[in-house]
Design a protein around this nucleic acid. Structure first.
Lengths: 174, 174
DNA sequence: AACCTTAAGCAAACATCTTTGCTTTAACAA
DNA sequence: TTGTTAAAGCAAAGATGTTTGCTTAAGGTT
């Protein structure tokens, strides 16, 4: 049931449908519209729920190359490739326009924060000097998502440049 | 006529109205809904038009303190205060979810780029070493907008920290 | 003035969304 | 089995959004 609904939403978003309403979703999912009206406050609420589910299901394994620079570069590149897929872009935009706020959005950031923490932890164990986790989020993740959301270009070189920048902040003194 | 419509949209967005439709806007503006249906493809098109107009009308004067660090800090703080206002947040979100894409969004970035360029130009004339304009956009502007759009906290300290970070990366790239 | 063009108003028809009371189904516990 | 509960279906009514053809007003041109 819920699976059918989530799938329907996913299909519609994937097709770039511009008029996503409860009746439309219900028909696609083969359920009664009333069910949707009763379970969710409005379309945005459902949309955000599905978006969170889709965006936090990572499956990407965390890079572990023995060097923070290579780890971050690989990680940023993977993310760049992932979030520029048209379907992902729509989910991100859907999340932004949804009203539910804070809580669910933090899930996204939290996933990234945990991943960054893990890479930093390993780097420090190796004796590398590293930027703060917050800096990685601010200067690698934020610009990537910002570019996607505002339809600015994102590619491997850009991801790499961001990583270079954030590492330069803690670079050798002098 | 157009003024009345823009004003109506502005009021509705400002009030946090969640159901902004042509009929609603029309009533508020004292015009016939048909006019709106005929002139704009859909509500998002109109919303984006108004959002661009509102977001690019800056009026903020560019800081010129004699030090890039102070200029950037002041600038970032002004922007932070500005874009966290509920009305601005809604406009930003509206822009993100609107479909019209690229062109109009670049107006936003371009304004910031010009401002950053000017401050950097002045700093270089004074003999300061500066980050690239692109770095300022990526590491100060992007994180600020990212935080606003994803409902993460933004305050003066955060803006200041971003400026500190971007200045820390100057001249340290390998 | 008479004409033409453009944009807006109006009203009716139409489509779609949303709510609601009631019925039905399915799962589970006594 | 039987009773209970939670969730889904159904259908009808109501609200809202959207389209359309036609009329009216305003500006500019001959």
């Amino acid at each position: 049931m819920q699976t059918a609904i989530y799938t329907a939403v996913g299909e519609l978003v994937g097709e770039g449908a511009d008029k996503i309403s409860f009746p439309v979703i219900a028909e696609r999912a083969g359920v009664n519209p009333t069910t949707l009206y009763r379970r969710w406050d409005d379309v945005n609420a459902l949309l955000e729920e599905v978006a969170v589910a889709a965006l936090t299901r990572d499956g990407e394994s965390l890079p572990d190359t023995g060097s923070l620079e290579r780890d971050l570069t690989e990680w940023a590149t993977i993310i760049a490739r992932d979030i520029t897929r048209p379907e992902r872009v729509r989910y991100l935009r859907a999340m932004v326009s949804a009203r539910i706020e804070i809580v669910s959005r933090c899930v996204l950031t939290e996933t990234r924060r945990e991943q960054a923490s893990e890479m930093v932890r390993r780097a420090r164990e190796r004796g590398e000097t590293t930027p703060a986790v917050a800096q990685i989020l601010d200067h690698v993740i934020a610009p990537l998502y910002y570019h996607v959301v505002f339809a600015l270009p994102v590619d491997h070189d850009y991801a790499q440049r961001l990583v270079g920048d954030v590492l330069a902040m803690v670079g050798r003194r002098g």
